[in-house]
């Protein structure tokens, strides 16, 4: 093997700055998209179980529409197809203020929101019906029952799959490079182009993604322990005692 490794390409010139900026953009777009996905997922997941057919139908439409189209297509759609429909001044404003970032964030958020939604629905449906009825007969309205009893229990039950899906969301943020969001993958590609050092650049990207995901996984495990339902997720709870 004659390849000469040169890891210094990662910190000489502008590389270090690019990588750092890439990490920040990846974290920024992922965090915002995660918040959007969590909000959309919780609301639509809950609506899919309510005793009112039109709301259930609305939530079902959202889920089926967004989860059944590839993420890449949504990225292109929000970036290339939607802005021309907007009024001229708004278009100009958007393209001066990182339209690609917002389009990418939006695509990522609504796509993963549809996937979160299904997890929340399954969490809610795993709760015995009497929990719901006990709340109603205690005088809570249907909305209060969801807000204070059903959703808090469901969210605690689905922390493991949500952790999994959150990692997917972070990794899928790399697709935003296709609409030129300067996130981590975009920046590693840029370093590769400037230095012709593909191995070093992509290794850096790989290691950084791995570190970010392990960090999130650790955080989610802590959250899972903290919010474990006593007597329901027994193994985790008893491991703590």
């Amino acid at each position: 093997m004659t390849y000469q490794f040169d890891w210094s390409v990662l910190w000489t010139g502008q590389s270090g700055e690019w990588l750092l900026q890439g990490i920040l953009t990846t974290l920024g777009i992922s965090t915002l998209a995660w918040l959007l996905a969590a909000a959309l997922g919780t609301v639509s997941g809950a609506l899919r179980t309510v005793p009112f057919a039109p709301l259930r139908a609305l939530a079902t439409c959202y889920v089926e529409f967004f989860r059944n189209v590839p993420l890449l297509v949504w990225m292109f759609f929000w970036y290339f197809a939607v802005p021309p429909l907007l009024p001229g001044p708004l278009q100009d404003w958007l393209f001066n203020h990182g339209a690609e970032f917002w389009a990418g964030m939006f695509a990522l958020g609504v796509y993963h929101g549809a996937r979160f939604s299904e997890m929340i629905r399954s969490g809610i449906q795993s709760i015995p019906k009497t929990q719901f009825e006990a709340a109603l007969s205690t005088g809570l309205t249907t909305a209060q029952t969801y807000r204070f009893v059903i959703i808090p229990i469901a969210l605690r039950l689905i922390i493991p799959p949500i952790a999994n899906e959150s990692l997917n969301l972070l990794k899928n943020s790399s697709v935003a490079l296709t609409i030129s969001v300067t996130e981590l993958t975009f920046q590693t590609r840029q370093i590769e182009t400037y230095t012709a050092r593909a191995f070093e650049a992509l290794t850096a990207g790989t290691v950084i993604y791995l570190a970010l995901c392990l960090g999130i996984a650790t955080l989610m495990t802590k959250i899972e322990r903290r919010f474990a339902l006593p007597g329901m997720i027994g193994r985790v709870a008893s491991a703590e005692h």
């Binding site: 015995p128 009497t130 929990q131 009825e133 006990a134 709340a135 109603l136 007969s137 205690t138 005088g139 809570l140 309205t141 249907t142 009893v149 808090p152 229990i153 605690r156 919010f227 339902l229 006593p230 007597g231 329901m232």
Partner: peptide, 18 residues
């Protein structure tokens, strides 16, 4: 049910776990 002012107890207790 929430407007009937009745208290109800179920066989499965339905104690809220959180």
């Amino acid at each position: 049910p929430e407007k009937r002012g009745m208290g109800m107890v179920f066989q499965s207790y339905a104690v809220w776990p959180h």
